[in-house]
Amino acid sequence: MLTSSPNTIFDQTSIFALNTTNSLIGLAIYVLAVVALWRIFTKAGYPGWLAIIPIVNAIFLVKIAGFSGWMSLLYLIPIVNIVFHIIVAIRLGRAFGHGGFFSFFLLVVFWVIGYLIVGFSDDKYRPERI
């Protein structure tokens, strides 16, 4: 008789190992995102340590994109959050002198790589570009 639940110690061990691997990958991505956002925040004139706190970094990223911090509440609405994230990414890229193509693909799709490029490049933050 076959069951779909993990019954043996080997099945439970492989599930635990998979969860550990996913946790380590998630932690590595979070650390890279914090490093990149730290540089972006300091370029924009905000303290870099704000990148460490998860919800606060989203609020200040929205402020860097030229919106009010209260607009970050739009991230809580299911379909609106996707559209708002694209708008914030395009405006953030424009504030650092990048076009829409760069902003969409590297700040929305491959966001960690895009934030690292914006953070460690020689781009200057100019809010009048928004």
Rank of each mutant, 00 (worst) to 15 (best):
Asp123Leu: 10
Leu50Arg: 09
Thr21Ala: 15
Ile130Arg: 03
Gly66Asn: 02
Lys43Gln: 02
Leu74Phe: 10
Gly48Pro: 10
Phe10Asp: 10
Trp70Tyr: 11
Ile40Ser: 08
Thr13Ser: 15
Asn22Val: 13
Leu32Met: 12
Ala33Glu: 13
Leu74Gly: 05
Leu37Lys: 07
Ser14Gln: 13
Ile59Val: 15
Val112Met: 05
Ser5Met: 11
Thr13Asp: 09
Arg39Val: 00
Arg129Gln: 08
Val108His: 02
Asn7Val: 08
Ala95Asp: 00
Asp123Ser: 15
Phe110Tyr: 07
Leu32Lys: 04
Tyr125Gly: 09
Ile87Gln: 04
Gly45Leu: 10
Gly66Thr: 01
Phe120Ile: 08
Ile55Glu: 01
Phe120His: 11
Tyr46Trp: 14
Leu107Phe: 03
His98Met: 11
Leu24Glu: 05
Ile64Arg: 01
His98Asn: 12
Ser72Ala: 15
Gly45Cys: 02
Val109Gly: 02
Ile113Glu: 06
Arg39Phe: 11
Lys63Tyr: 12
Phe60Ala: 02
Leu61His: 00
Tyr46Met: 06
Phe41Met: 07
Thr20Gly: 06
Leu2Phe: 11
Ile86Lys: 00
Phe110Thr: 03
Arg91Pro: 04
Pro47Thr: 06
Ile130His: 04
Ala44Trp: 10
Ala33Gly: 06
Ala36Phe: 04
Leu73Thr: 00
Trp111Glu: 10
Phe105Lys: 02
Trp49Asp: 11
Phe41Ala: 02
Phe110Lys: 01
Ile29Pro: 03
Trp70Phe: 12
Ile82Arg: 01
Thr3Phe: 10
Thr20Tyr: 04
Ile40Met: 07
Pro78Trp: 02
Ile87Phe: 06
Tyr30Trp: 11
Gly48Ala: 04
Ile79Cys: 12
Leu74Ile: 07
Ile52Pro: 07
Ile29Glu: 03
Tyr115Met: 03
Gly48Leu: 07
Thr21Asn: 02
Leu76Thr: 04
Tyr125Pro: 09
Arg39His: 14
Arg91Ile: 05
Asn22Trp: 11
Phe120Cys: 08
Arg126Phe: 06
His85Val: 01
Pro127Tyr: 10
Leu116Thr: 12
Pro127Ser: 13
Glu128Pro: 03
Ile59Met: 14
Pro47Gln: 05
Gly99Trp: 03
Lys124Val: 15
Ala17Glu: 12
Val108Phe: 14
Ser5Cys: 09
Trp49Cys: 12
Gly66Ala: 04
Pro47His: 06
Leu76Asn: 03
Ile59Tyr: 14
Val35Lys: 04
Ile15Lys: 05
